[in-house]
Design a protein around this nucleic acid. Structure first.
Length: 374
RNA sequence: CCAGGGGUGGCGGAGUGGCCAAUCGCACCAGACUGUAAAUCUGGCGGGUUUAUCCCUUCGUAGGUUCGAAUCCUACCCCCUGGA
């Protein structure tokens, strides 16, 4: 374990409350963790969620969120809320289909609403921050320019240039909004910048330096954190924290599967979000510890401490045991594998709910383990 | 008993002389999913091997026609729908 970066940041104070670190916040992209509600989230010991600025801009729209007093009120959630800038999906979708939008120095224009229709949206760095204030999130993300892993050098350079430029505009707008809203220091959300640069370490370094100069309260892992073989890129994950002072708040955007989260915590990252546990749940892939997490002595150095259960397999039709004997989630406490298998077989939405609750509880237990609570 | 329709791989259901070991769907098996265009997608799914526009067995049963039959003919068995 790298003691110089690991474990330095034990908590983060925002708006007078404290986030215990590390933690994992699942993706409530559109203001909901698909198939479950805020109470389920709380019961699964989830402390925070990340919502998406672009998706919420598209629906329900900032004025609705403003009227409702922010997304927390809107979704009946009293935990932490991170708002992602929307950069990632905009860029990744435009890269898949160029007709869906365009990118200029001023911002991103996009022609697809979350309804599937063809409304037009333009997100500039300023607008991105304004909407995040309407969302009323605790942690905000500066608009960044995403590049895929295999990006060409010139694209990487452009992405770093614009990520820094937009970062500055976001930061300025952030300060302006705090002023307009007369937020005291204890009421302010925090804003972090995103380190781009793809696989190019020099560009990563340049991006980190540019962002540091602007001065954010944290920094995110941008881009696609995988190597050529689609393995989680540990080299990059280790490299980026070294570009910042010890104790800097670091956010692993889109990270990751359980092993990637554990590895990233070891390397100094503090908060994570990823669609995997919730999407996998809906896709019938459940996560289970291979032994009681209390008995995992050193999760950073152990292997095979978790595995998948493909719950719709025929072998679970008569499975009288819970998904996991080491799990205290609503699904494991009250239902058998057999029942869950049945719910999937008949396509009942309860299958998605119970599976999602379970996978999220697995993640929250993993985080408890990483915080040394169990 | 008469008339009509039909029996195809675990199931449903295409195919109606060669390109058929047989479209497709379901089920089943093995996977993928990483700041959510995703309750989605990929591959396998008769057997064998020298892995190939190869061999064997298979489209109710038994014969037949044909260079060649799931496909045509005959008989038989079974199912469905009307009628006595």
């Amino acid at each position: 374990m790298n003691e110089s970066v690991c474990g330095k940041l034990k908590n983060l104070k925002i708006k007078g409350k404290t986030i215990l670190l590390p933690d994992f916040f699942p993706d409530a992209t559109r203001g909901v963790i698909r198939s479950i509600d805020s109470r389920d989230l709380k019961d699964a010991k989830i402390n925070g969620v990340i919502v998406n600025t672009y998706h919420l801009l598209s629906q329900p729209g900032p004025s609705v969120l403003k009227t409702l007093g922010g997304v927390r009120n809107f979704m009946g959630w009293d935990g932490w809320v991170v708002s992602d800038s929307g950069g990632f999906q905009l860029f990744s979708i435009i890269q898949k289909n160029k007709s869906l939008g365009s990118i200029t120095r001023d911002g991103v224009t996009f022609h697809l609403s979350s309804k599937g229709g063809r409304s037009k949206y333009k997100i500039t760095p300023e607008k991105c921050i304004q909407i995040q204030f309407d969302i009323h999130s605790d942690i905000m993300v500066a608009l960044d320019y995403f590049t895929p892993y295999k990006a060409k050098d010139e694209d990487i350079k452009l992405s770093v240039d614009l990520t820094i430029e937009w970062g500055k505009r976001c930061k300025d707008e952030f300060e302006r909004q705090c002023e307009i809203r007369k937020l005291k220091n204890s009421d302010r959300p925090i804003l972090f910048g995103v380190v781009q640069g793809a696989h190019n370490l020099k560009e990563r370094e340049r991006c980190a330096a540019g962002l540091k100069k602007i001065g954010f309260e944290g920094y995110g892992y941008g881009g696609w954190p995988f190597d050529d073989e689609m393995n989680f890129d540990l080299k990059l994950t280790e490299f980026i924290p070294k570009l910042f002072d010890k104790g800097t708040f670091l956010y692993g955007l889109g990270v990751g599967n359980p092993q990637a989260v554990v590895d990233s915590v070891r390397l100094g990252w503090n908060i994570f979000d990823c669609v995997l546990p919730t999407r996998d749940a809906r896709h019938k892939r459940l996560y289970v510890f291979t032994k009681d997490p209390k008995e995992i002595e050193d999760i950073f150095n152990e292997k095979d401490w978790y595995e998948y259960v493909y719950i719709s397999r025929e072998k679970h039709v008569r499975g009288n045991s819970p998904i996991s004997p080491y799990c205290d989630c609503h699904a494991c406490k009250n239902y058998s594998r057999s029942y869950l298998n049945h719910l999937f077989a008949i396509d009942d939405s309860l299958a998605y709910r119970l599976s999602t609750i379970h996978n999220l509880r697995m993640y929250s237990m993993m985080m408890e383990k990483l915080r040394g609570e169990i």
